[in-house]
Amino acid sequence: MPTSDRSRPGGGRQDRNVLAVCDMAKAFGGLKVFNGISFRIEPGEVLGVIGPNGAGKTTLINVICGMLRPSSGTIQFDGGNIGGRSFHAVSRLGIVRSFQQTITFRTASVRENLTRAIRFSGSGGVAWAQIGELLDAFGLGPMLDEPSDSLPYGSQKILGLLMAYAANPKMLLLDEPAAGLESRERTRIDRLVLHAREHLGCGILIVEHDMDLIRRLCPRLIVLEAGGVLAQGAPEEVLARSDVIQAYLGQSEDEADRDAATRRTARAAH
């Protein structure tokens, strides 16, 4: 099981805004989701996370952002251990997540959604002008005063991601940003991610099933499988490995779904 030997718990100045997950395990009762995974994300780095359904990709984000406590191991950010700290405390440190479903303040306008994101963020949020550029690029400019739940699905999803951006994160965790979007809309994710990397300089973790998007955006990739990191490295290397293809790419979505369900049942039975 390859683990990163670069993560140095308690590291100092080199760890500014670095996220280092070190030998982190998570179990729900007897069901082990992770048995010791490690990786590291530097500022400005985009890391892709893939794996079959049920491999724990969303759980990984939930543990990092504080919605779940790790069972063991450490999660370091900016040199301090954040494992087990509460959701809001982690987000005030600048680790901001998006959700797989579209989640915005439904009754509030687009403008108010973004205002709230800016106002409540631990770092004070980004300047309006900075989002304005993206709003226009995504066609949301004329819809600023519409209630967010009146927007089409794709725009709501983009708004959710823009809110994460507006919070001026130091580390951005994106949970399947492209899921449910048309291919035309998916290029917006590219633009948002590149914009965030360039203008905010934050590290970005992307959990995604869209391999094209992963190839476009992520110079480095980790594959989660059966509670561990099956492979990590550049997408072209990793995605060419036979064990990765076996675990993930060789299967259709349906097969992957069924397998994950079987695995879950098998684990739950233990």
């Binding site: 952002c65 509460s86 959701f87 809001h88 405390a89 987000s91 005030r92 901001v96 997540r97 959700f99 989640i103 915005t104 303040f105 439904r106 009754t107 509030a108 205002t115 709230r116 994101a117 106002r119 409540f120 963020s121 631990g122 959710g160 809110m163 994460a164 919070a167």
Partner: peptide, 24 residues
């Protein structure tokens, strides 16, 4: 007020509000 803004955000969606750094 900011206090009201926070309360309404909490009322709208607690999960997003917390994700943005608000403390329930």
């Amino acid at each position: 007020t900011d206090f009201g803004l926070a309360l309404r955000a909490m009322a709208d969606n607690r999960e997003v509000a917390t994700a943005l750094g608000m403390r329930p």
